[in-house]
Design a protein around this nucleic acid. Structure first.
Lengths: 225, 225
DNA sequence: GAGTGTCTCAAACGTATGTTTCAAACAGAC
DNA sequence: GTCTGTTTGAAACATACGTTTGAGACACTC
């Protein structure tokens, strides 16, 4: 074979195992035995385990980042001069992730789970890699959010964006487990698309909540001070 | 010394390191050297690394669970026959965690971060341990949430609770870092109490958002199917 | 078909991990 | 003081990890 498929087999296996178990909990030997390739192939083709992790992310993040840029372009064009609304911005992001070209049926779930892990697991090298490779669509999203919520103070907006990120990353990073729990308890099946469909209204409502400082009940022991 | 403080020193060090780095990324040798105790002390006092993880959780979860039960008791008593509202329920939980007896100033952040990790890192033994030890206050909270949101279907409510958990665990677990970023960018100081003050309205608004299935924009490519 | 660069393979390397061992130190009771 | 049960200490254990090695197989060029 001229161009070996070993690289792809490794990436496929690594992607799935990383998503299932996390990075440090997945050994190269698990990956190579699942991919049915030799152990040394990983270091031959990628150089190191960290570089393999980067490659796994790059394989889906590069096309996703392109799709997202395009979605933002269309959105801003469609809106003309007035800035896109919060709902439109969130849906542009959601649709981009859902309509991504998928390698298999688990595509989105793995994609989301990996993104969640990237935030959650404190892998310094990964964060650095993602920041310097994909900072542009990220800050563009932030800019759109700012335009869509002019009524919020910078501080309020900052914290609410963190809340959104948290709800998304956390839910997606354990979406398999959560889906299974729900499946066992109620027999209801839930696709990742449906989770996203439920998540966006939740986030939008939270972002647009009333002034946060007025809500503690009168008898609360917490002072605003 | 009659009752050694080795146990507590190990628990303190383990708690902090686990919260900083996760479970598999923290070795017993890191813990014992931070705690300035012998390596074998962990296995002597706790039996295994997994048992140590359980002990770390039990040390703050047991008193917290008691505080929470009490807060729920007071809440339900105060409300008489009608069920507590969503805001009241959320505030009862928030105040319980904020007013927890804290070992140090990082108390709440570590507490939240560990809870988030427990959900995120796929440590089967931990989930099993937490479920069989602390299922009661958890399901009581769930019951209160159910009563406070009768308009939601069971499935909607399930997912929205996950979103709340995520926003909370994620934000609180990285509250130190997030506070510092905000401090550097805007010069604004934020206490954990203030984060909670901002978080609760966000969550309440998200929980009470309009029917999630009606919100995708008209030109959306996503079908509700 | 000899030569060349690419890739695979089994084996080993060095290091780090969780756990165990066993002697020494310590405490409190008699 | 001596004994007894508990706790600490340094060292070793077995295992798993990421990585490296060097010989072999393969496809291709000239």
């Amino acid at each position: 074979m001229a161009q070996s498929d070993t690289v792809d087999r490794i990436l496929d296996a690594a992607e799935e195992l990383f998503a299932e178990r996390g990075f440090s909990e997945t050994s190269l030997r698990m990956i190579t035995s699942k991919a049915k390739v030799n152990l040394a192939a990983v270091n031959y083709h990628f150089g190191s385990k960290n570089a393999l992790i980067h490659a796994v992310f790059a394989r889906f993040l590069t096309p996703f980042s392109a799709t997202l840029e395009q979605a933002f372009d269309e959105l801003e064009e469609r809106c003309g001069d007035h800035p896109p609304t919060l709902n439109e911005t969130l849906w542009a992001l959601t649709e981009s992730s859902i309509r991504m070209p998928q390698r298999n049926e688990k595509g989105i779930a793995i994609f989301m789970r990996l993104l969640g892990l990237a935030y959650t697991q404190s892998q310094g090298h990964l964060r650095k890699f993602l920041e310097q490779e994909y900072s542009e669509p990220f800050s563009r999203f932030m800019r759109l959010l700012k335009q869509a919520t002019p009524q919020l103070s910078a501080v309020d907006r900052y914290w609410r964006i963190q809340f959104m990120l948290g709800a998304t990353a956390f839910t997606m990073s354990s979406s398999d487990a959560l889906r299974d729990i729900l499946q066992n308890k109620t027999g209801v099946e839930t696709s990742v698309q449906e989770i996203a469909l439920r998540l966006v209204p939740f986030l939008a409502a939270g972002m647009q909540a009333e002034n946060p400082m007025l809500t503690p009940p009168l008898d609360s022991k917490i002072s605003v001070a």
